[in-house]
Design a protein around this nucleic acid. Structure first.
Lengths: 160, 160
DNA sequence: AGGGTGATTGACGTGAACGTCAACGTACGA
DNA sequence: TCGTACGTTGACGTTCACGTCAATCACCCT
């Protein structure tokens, strides 16, 4: 498809779809990463040109942001991220109603599953927050010790 | 050396040296990891038997804890961790006095280097703390939405 | 009509952080 | 004395998360 279409992406009905290169550079990753995430079942572009070029929606961009957040901030591997997103997706389907084919029992199970996952992740984040606070305290303590040393060196400098 | 010596490690002068297997299992890593860290210049056992078995001191254990903290909490790679520990080590040497061979200018440079590194790391930790707080907020918001869905499902259950 | 740009699908390569295996040595308890 | 447990040094294997390259295709501009 090439460039130039960027400004004309918003045609009539489709709400702003973007090419892979644009999405990648905006997110600070390579196009290879996006293809790999698709291959891993993490992020499927919501559109495609007749030639086969991937088209990403704003929702896709948001999903990518979530993936990178889980990867960089929490340090999860891609399989873990896939499971998390999968659970969230299934819950989103629940909300979307029109899920008449799913039994009430199954729906309650899905909701419980998502809530369990959410609770576990909250616990992990809180734990990590505690560790990070401790680490920050260590750093500040080190800093004050460093200042003492620097002061000592200054005194030596004056004496000599 | 084998087992059994564990309790007799504290002989006369050396203050409690432990075998690699004990250290590894206590830290939740394998012995391979400890050997790899030595190979990478991250953690050198402070003792060794005449046959060649590694002996780790309590200070070594503390250093290992630092390494795993930097690896797991901050997500740094081993090279980055090596540089951090190296800078801290040099500063510790400064404090230990008896560094008459080092010029005042060099000592001041080392102190400044350590303080710069400390400041950069504090910034990174604070940044990560911010991201984690944001992530936790997302999770809590999700949780309340999930509760709504669960409540809705309960109402349906009552209706049916 | 031709060139530049950005996309596609394979397929193979790579670096980090270990895992695993072979061959060997040694101390301890029965 | 012998088996078991634990240690040693190579050396090769493995997984993850991409990087890189080749061959091809389709727009866009001049």
């Amino acid at each position: 498809m090439g460039a130039g279409m960027t400004a004309r992406a918003r045609q009539a009905d489709d709400a702003a779809l973007h090419a892979i290169g644009e999405i990648a550079s905006r997110a600070g990753v390579t196009t290879r990463t996006l293809r790999y995430y698709q291959e891993m079942g993490l992020l499927h572009p919501s559109g495609v040109t007749r030639r086969g070029n991937r088209l990403y929606s704003d929702a896709d961009v948001e999903r990518l942001r979530r993936i990178l957040e889980l990867r960089d901030v929490m340090g999860f591997d891609l399989e873990r991220i896939r499971l998390i997103l999968q659970t969230e997706d299934r819950l989103a389907e629940l909300r979307a109603e029109a899920q008449r084919g799913i039994s009430a029992a199954r729906r309650r199970e899905m909701a419980r599953e998502a809530m369990d996952l959410n609770a576990r992740m909250q616990y992990e984040v809180e734990e990590k927050l505690g560790l990070l606070h401790g680490f920050l305290a260590e750093l500040r303590a080190d800093a004050s010790r460093y200042r003492d040393i620097a002061a000592h060196l200054d005194i030596e400098a004056v004496e000599s």
